[in-house]
Design a protein around this nucleic acid. Structure first.
Lengths: 367, 367
DNA sequence: CTGAAAGCGCTTACAG
DNA sequence: CTGAAAGCGCTTACAG
């Protein structure tokens, strides 16, 4: 393995009594090497632990086998899942990853980040920053001028100017709202994410469309804008109840805000789900153990991350073949979310309600 | 900015009517360039958006300005905090980061990861994998043979063979247990992390030492081994109560398990903190909104990550100066945790208990 | 099947 | 102050 004084291909060649080209052939599994030569070189490599300098290889091949990944908010559920999936798939496909984190999604210095990534000769870029305000405006102009392929992770307002993969956030709002209506709620409030976020807007849109579809009015008084934090969810419920005392169901646009809603309900001694149904989004690890266990919408984030890598690998291959990025219409892939029903929401079928009441006994008899 | 056909230093030289050495001097802020020449070259660089190829620069300088970061479990609170801090500090100091994630802390193929990192010519390695079982055994042998500096993040059993920085996990156990005893608990149970984890062992040790210091016996019946998950915390409480019905306080070795304990308490209709005090570890974002808000021990993880980068930068500088890694005794830095008191634990001073009861009113009158 | 030559894009001495 | 030469560690044609 690792040596203190790094060897070069020249050292290996000398030790094996061949030229460096022959060593290079062995390293790259070329067929045109005599069997005995092959063995001799391989022995030296094994014995010395020599590994070729990827910098030199990349320089000459014009390909680094490194992907630039730009992300935001690793402390949150979604981004960390996406990044984990990206890394896993990248490693599997032989790519290294260079990570750039952004402090604020709105204010990141896009030019600077792209410059740094390109200077490091990444083969492609995965842009996993959510769309906030017009922080993707650059994609319209600079996007198509990039010398390497780029994939956006997360949806995009309007037609994408760059290939992207994301979750159908409209569908998230629809699934949650349909479920709450099916549970018998007459008025369904919503606590949104920051409305500068495209994802938050889309979830709100899904809620709105669903209410309208059922002949209900998506009144402004039913909408409170949160900021993804637990606290904003808590305050959100207080505000909703103040405005519309009749609310019996709330769609919180992520699980953290849903936790805040549950917290507020406890303080107000509102029973969940009997008096208030709550649905969140994310299906974070803790959600199944909130009190009561949270009904939520699960997003296939790992799929999105993995597919982003597969797709950019495809784009890289195509670009290298054509000697320049392809201009074919960028594809936007949307993956479907899934509703996970637990005990924070009333169900359409009364019989199932008893299942929850029965849990206490079942649990108490656990070993 | 980014051009489709990448420019080289040669193109810039030609456009400015100078040699490539002169361009190189401008690029590297060398003083020995005539003012007019400087301006002319800078103009060309600005106009063309030329940026030097870092691969070539790294190859010749023998320095990549890239740090290899090996991490595990980004979906958990601690690791994601540490990584974020590492990236931030690295970016600030001019380093790029190449990220390698490991699926299981016990089984990661250390040799392979080190080889990949070294082949990419990283300047240093930050090993942010927790110590589980003997998954750091390699550090005793291979560690000192590495051609680049390495920093371990997280504590280490026995004397470290490599420089490391971590949190004082003993102190975590002490802080939590002292607090629970101060609250009047006669029997303090503990739900540990997996005991193959060094951190879990240390927290248990802190608990044990504190009990003994107070003349109490750290009986085995007070110890349940969890696995960091919410569910294991829930099951942990059932088991503890079965064995020791008198338990009135539980130290859960992380917040997720503490959440499980709260969940179990709700199911059993045990009042927290009146009948059961609970303390966790991590101070995750949701902890302040668990029901009741969780008393927990905060770890300075961001500090640990940031200081790991500062320290490795120092080691890199020293190594380059000496032409080889230094063998001076590796330092092990431990940072101190801090107790965050909330409402899941009884307090020593009765007067403060009323503060919590008063919250309901205060909250109800919120806007 | 194997080696001598050229070159990836840059920086580091070395001359002028 | 500036340029011609050499070379970082490798791979890619090109001869033999």
């Amino acid at each position: 393995m690792a040596q203190r004084n790094r060897m070069t291909i020249r050292d290996v060649a000398a030790a094996a009594g061949v030229s460096i080209q022959t060593v290079s052939r062995v390293l790259n599994n070329r067929p045109d090497v005599a069997p005995e030569t092959l063995v001799r070189v391989q022995d030296v490599i094994k014995a010395t632990g020599y590994a070729p300098n990827m910098l030199a290889r990349s320089l000459i091949q014009g390909r680094s086998h490194v992907l630039g990944v730009v992300a935001y908010g690793l402390e949150y559920f979604g981004p960390s899942r996406v990044l984990t999936a990206i890394e896993r798939q990248a490693a599997q496909m032989g790519y290294g990853i260079t990570l750039n984190l952004i402090l604020e999604p709105e204010t990141g210095d896009v030019d600077h980040i792209l410059d740094v990534l390109l200077a490091r000769q990444v083969d492609g870029i995965i842009w996993a920053i959510p769309e906030v305000g017009d922080n993707r405006a650059w994609s319209r102009t600079k996007g198509s001028e990039l010398p390497v392929p780029i994939m956006l992770v997360g949806g995009m307002a309007g037609r994408p100017h760059l290939p992207s993969i994301g979750i159908d956030n409209d569908a998230i709002g629809c699934l949650a709202t349909e479920h709450l209506l099916a549970g018998g709620a007459a008025k369904v409030g919503i606590i949104t994410g920051p409305l500068s976020w495209w994802e938050a807007q889309q979830r709100l849109r899904g809620w709105r469309m669903t209410l309208e579809k059922h002949g209900l009015e998506p009144a402004d008084s039913l909408i409170v804008e949160g900021d993804w934090t637990v606290t904003s969810g808590e305050l959100g419920l207080y505000r909703l109840l103040e405005r519309c005392p009749g609310i019996s169901a709330v769609f919180a646009s992520n699980d953290q805000m849903a936790l805040g809603v549950l917290h507020a309900a406890h303080r107000l001694e509102l029973r969940v789900p009997q008096e208030l149904s709550v649905v969140g989004v994310d299906n974070m690890a803790e959600a199944s153990h909130f009190w009561p266990p949270l009904t939520t919408v699960d997003q296939p984030l790992a799929d999105a991350g993995g597919r982003a890598v597969e797709e950019i690998d495809r784009l890289i291959a195509r670009t290298r073949q054509a000697r320049r990025p392809q201009d074919s219409a960028p594809e936007m892939t949307l993956l479907m979310p899934e509703l996970i029903v637990r005990q924070s929401s009333r169900l359409a079928v009364p019989i199932e309600l008893t299942a929850f009441d029965g849990m206490k006994q079942a649990t108490a008899s656990l070993d």
